[in-house]
Amino acid sequence: MAVKVSLKVNGKSVSVEVEERTLLVTVIRENLRLTGTHVGCDTAQCGACTVSMNGKAVKSCSILAMQAEGADVMTIEGVAKADGTLHAMQAAFKEHHGLQCGFCTPGMVMNAIDFAKSHPNPSEQEIREALEGNLCRCTGYHNIVKAIGAGAKAMAAGK
């Protein structure tokens, strides 16, 4: 049966008609056409579908759209400034070459932004632990770790 779910996505209030079994990631990608959020595994392993829900990084393939009723969701499309200036974490990924094919990157960045809020100057160990839920098949993680360290410092410096 079709039901209505209302939430905020990237600052805008949206209301969509969905089946009750619809996943949050499906609403984001198919109803709202925000295809920056990726589906890698569809089994809660890879983190490519990570978005921010009420300020916390979560895996949108493992959440029913109905669970997000009234929530404030931010996707990768919402993190840069309106004029296109990259978020400090995005800029750090670019600067430190923290990506190759880019498939995992939206999830990496969304998780990293949330992590950096509570870790302004993270150690390499802390960053690697924070990435337990994000898989990358290309980079070997090394530059991602560097990028997150730099991005966290830049965020703390108010950039």
Binding site: T50, A57, V58, K59, D114, A130, E132, G133
Partner: peptide
């Protein structure tokens, strides 16, 4: 438990 995204939910 799990990873930080799993722990958030």
């Amino acid at each position: 438990i799990g990873d930080r995204q799993v722990r958030a939910m």
